[in-house]
């Protein structure tokens, strides 16, 4: 019995250590962000002493920097991309999961094989394309390329395939057209998968860096990650300000994650469609 308890002790010690490694940096980040002194790298113990705390850095981020503009840009772009991704991936996923038509396998194979193509290869042509359309440094240019993501189509297809075929056939006999089967049967029973796609897309769009850093030229079109990357170069010595800014960016994805945690984990593997 003693040995068992010792094992348990080791197990929890390892667990605690891992947890520290994974969330410790964020706690460090938080304490820097509330530090009054700009010299945050002296004695780490000083960071933990309440008299040295202040929330002024957050106020400074909000007031002194174009943070509000970046927040708006990020929110706008992310929301449009999330809504459209959910919509389009549901449509395309339904087609690939449930309809048979000539060329379906080939088309789907083509989409999947493109997943191994590095995004950097698309960067130059996409930029030239946007440049020709005069869409560099515009919202349209920032939004358009990510209205649909192939992985999302794949996820929706996977989910729709778990919905029993009987359900579709019962609906056919009841008199549904395929459009109605999609709209009145498949969509309503797919909320877990749709939520998962929405959450994944939100997170991906919110954190996207390569495309906006390439396409947004002026500060008024920056998204939050681009803006903070830019701040990093400007205010490298002002760590409290920088950490306050980065913490603020993290909050929305963190909140969404904590609220919808079960969708992340069950996500698409969920059997929401099964009775």
């Amino acid at each position: 019995m003693k040995r068992l308890q010792f094992q348990k002790f080791i197990f929890y010690a390892v667990l605690l250590l891992m947890t520290t490694v994974y969330i410790g940096p964020f706690i460090y980040q938080f304490f820097i962000s509330i530090s009054q002194s700009k010299d945050v790298f002296g004695d780490p113990v000083k960071l933990l002493q309440p008299p040295n705390w202040t929330f002024q850095n957050y106020a400074n981020v909000w007031v002194d920097l174009p943070f509000k503009q970046w927040l708006f840009n990020s929110l706008f772009i992310t929301l449009v991309q999330t809504i459209m991704n959910v919509f389009f991936s549901a449509l395309a996923g339904f087609v690939f999961a449930r309809l048979t038509f000539p060329g379906r396998k080939f088309l789907f194979g083509l989409l999947i094989s493109s997943l191994t193509v590095p995004v950097i290869i698309l960067l130059v042509p996409k930029f030239i394309f946007m440049n020709n359309l005069r869409l560099v440094n515009t919202y349209a240019g920032l939004i358009l390329p990510n209205l649909i993501t192939i992985t999302n189509i794949f996820l929706m297809k996977q989910f729709f395939e778990t919905i029993p075929k009987d359900l579709e056939e019962a609906a056919l006999i009841d008199g549904c057209s395929y459009f109605r089967i999609f709209w009145q049967i498949f969509l309503p029973v797919s909320t877990p998968a749709l939520a998962a796609v929405a959450i994944y897309t939100f997170q991906g769009s919110w954190n996207e860096f390569l495309w906006p850093v390439t396409l947004a030229i002026t500060s008024d079109k920056f998204t939050l990650p681009v803006g903070v990357g830019f701040l990093k170069n400007q205010f490298q010595s002002d760590w409290p300000l920088l950490m306050a800014g980065t913490l603020l960016i993290t909050l929305p994805t963190l909140c969404i994650f904590l609220v919808f945690q079960r969708y992340f984990v069950q996500g698409v593997a969920a059997s929401g469609g099964k009775e």
């Binding site: 940096p25 954190n207 990650p225 920088l242 960016i249």
Partner: peptide
């Protein structure tokens, strides 16, 4: 614990990179 391990994954690469610089 699951959330703790997952949080770095949902955080922007810009944020985690800045954090690592610090």
């Amino acid at each position: 614990f699951r959330a703790a391990f997952y949080i770095p994954a949902i955080t922007s690469s810009v944020v985690t990179s800045t954090l690592f610089i610090a």
